[in-house]
Design a protein around this nucleic acid. Sequence first.
DNA 1: TTTCAAAAGGCTAACCGTTAGTGCTACGGT
DNA 2: ACCGTAGCACTAACGGTTAGCCTTTTGAAA
Lengths: 201, 201
Amino acid sequence: MTAPTGRRERKKAATRQKIADAALRLFLERGYEAVGIRDVAAEADVAVTTLFAHFPSKEALVFGHDQDFERRLTEAVTDRAPGEPLIPALRREVQALVRHCTGDGSAPIWRLIDASQTLLDYEKSMRLRHAESLAAAIAADLGLPPATTACRTIARFVIDAYSLAREAADPEAALDEIFRMIEAAWAAARPSADPVGTTEP
Amino acid sequence: MTAPTGRRERKKAATRQKIADAALRLFLERGYEAVGIRDVAAEADVAVTTLFAHFPSKEALVFGHDQDFERRLTEAVTDRAPGEPLIPALRREVQALVRHCTGDGSAPIWRLIDASQTLLDYEKSMRLRHAESLAAAIAADLGLPPATTACRTIARFVIDAYSLAREAADPEAALDEIFRMIEAAWAAARPSADPVGTTEP
DNA sequence: TTTCAAAAGGCTAACCGTTAGTGCTACGGT
DNA sequence: ACCGTAGCACTAACGGTTAGCCTTTTGAAA
């Protein structure tokens, strides 16, 4: 984590942070649509082109930590205790993620997102990309060829679980319900394992 | 279907068709990104504002029949034979839809879509909207309050099935595999029914 | 130390999708 | 026959995004 290289990267990170902070401040003050890229650039005291050198789009200003999400999901697969079954490990991580983004700390940002169709769309697209990474991680973990249908399917279901639970009135209960379904789906996908003893002859 | 009203609507429909045709022609010729809205408008011999009066966005020019997709899915639920179980009915319809869009007739359009990230993103967003409609239809059919977690979940899974099968090397096999998982998930969601006899005490 | 290539940032000007604002014309119901 | 309005056109602009070109900083080679 501690960079072996020096000053340039620190300055770059600082600029990026300055832009992200300015953007979030303005968005929370006036709302996402009411703030223009040029406003953000001015507030951060950088040129518009500099802003776009750090963030690929206006929406990305809000989702600065999307890589964390992706990393945490794949690591939940790769770094889990040896012998621990796949789905419960994913369930734990998704639960943590949902708790994090329904917690008080993240509430203003999510109010911002839920108020803008543009941001909602962007988020869903992002999640689908994450599903691909997750599918690859699952396939690798199981020693399967990448992009197996079953792996991609389960990855999508897990992302769906996150998305639906986040929107549900009672996220914890929703997560319970959905992951019960995912467990069943996963068991049906691989007639080898024995989750509760439903092995077939 | 045959309009009870007269000339105005016919002219309107003709204009819309003219625009859609011109757009498709240009897109297939030069590629989606290489064609501007102004090009399409000129080719269709209408004003840009007229174009946007008929289509809400550039992407919508390509997905002119998205309402068909939504309608067919919900009708697969509401119009199925009395007593027919839900999931097989959905499976049949999804299979038909996948066959349709992997058939030779639709091949060029889908090559167009798969070549543009913008269009792919738009398509996924569309499907998520369709999932909401499907969830509502399922909930209504089962006499449940709308937007139940289980219904929304199954609806998402069905949409995932379509999306994944379309991209798979062997769509039919993928559909088999995924719907086996969906059946299991559905059975797990409602401990009342008895799909294979997995009733709990 | 000097030198140099690349990175980071800036400025201008434009492109492209999209949307007012305005007005004209033809159609359809009264 | 009359009038409201739907369909369409035209101009201008707005806002996100990018290309072209230039300056400064910085890391490292010479």
